[in-house]
């Protein structure tokens, strides 16, 4: 695990995961995970389906606890504080750690209402302010030009790719530190995927991004660091370039070269 220390020298870790274990009932889904997520970098999580990569990302904003049988042990330090601590507000955590899901999930409301949902529930009422936020967020999500004339149309009238960018805009509206993306392009066609990937490259200048992906190419294209998970274990973690050119573990190599998964 030298790589972690190397990374630490360059930038600050926003998430420090220490000895994280997670069980669904009696099935262990994450086994003793230790990893640091660096600020303002893109970290890609790869691995075959069922390896725990989705579970891992959902643990970072504690969405995994929506399933009642989940048990965890270990620590996740976010800005140095353990998110599993009793005093730690899960709602506060999720306010600064946004999430984009596998399937676009806009609310069945207007485009505008979708974007201002976050600011509204967090107490911003001023109409002008809300409109400002909507415009900025949609611009940051590279959607503004496409929807500026139909902000009051239902979000489900948008294409899949537009819906996903709307969901990203919805996250950006409350200005999070971190964006968690759970296979955000897996439900999209190649062109829409390309646009979302371009957007992620834009966003990484301002946000810390953790992205789960099943596409090695995507990981190689957009991420700074890559973590490879296999049946609940973290096999390898390091600079994306290093992992893809010179994987240290045989299993990583097998996966990257497409021998399984």
């Amino acid at each position: 695990m030298k790589t972690i220390n190397e990374l630490k020298d360059e930038k600050k870790a926003i998430f420090s995961i220490k000895n994280l274990n997670l069980w669904y009932g009696n099935d262990q889904a994450l086994k003793n995970i230790n990893i640091d997520i660096m600020e303002k970098e893109v970290t890609a999580i790869i691995g075959p389906s069922g390896c725990g990569k989705s579970t891992f990302i959902k643990t970072l904003n504690r969405m995994v606890e929506m399933i009642p049988i989940v048990k965890t042990s270990g620590e996740i330090l976010y800005h140095g504080k353990n998110i599993f601590d009793k005093g730690f507000g899960v709602e506060e955590l999720r306010t600064t750690v946004g999430m984009v899901f596998q399937k676009p999930n806009p609310f069945p409301k207007s485009i505008y209402e979708n974007v201002v949902y976050g600011p509204k529930i967090h107490g911003i009422k001023d109409k002008r302010k809300l409109m400002e936020i909507a415009e900025e967020s949609l611009k940051s999500a590279a959607l503004w030009d496409e929807v500026k004339d139909r902000l009051n149309d239902n979000a489900y009238g948008l294409s899949g790719g537009q819906q996903q960018r709307l969901c990203i805009a919805r996250c950006l509206a409350i200005q999070p530190d971190v964006l968690l993306m759970d296979e955000p392009t897996s439900a999209l066609d190649p062109i829409a995927t390309h646009r979302v990937e371009g957007l992620i490259e834009e966003l990484k200048n301002h946000y810390t991004i953790v992205i789960v992906t099943h596409s090695m190419h995507q990981a190689a294209r957009i991420s700074d660091n890559t973590a490879f998970f296999l049946s609940g274990d973290l096999i390898e973690f390091g600079k994306t370039q290093a992992i893809f050119s010179k994987p240290r573990d045989k299993r990583t190599e097998d996966y990257i070269t497409g021998r399984f998964g």
Partner: peptide
């Protein structure tokens, strides 16, 4: 997934 979207925004 609609509930998830809301909870994930800190609602």
């Amino acid at each position: 997934f609609l509930r998830d979207a809301s909870y994930a925004m800190g609602a």
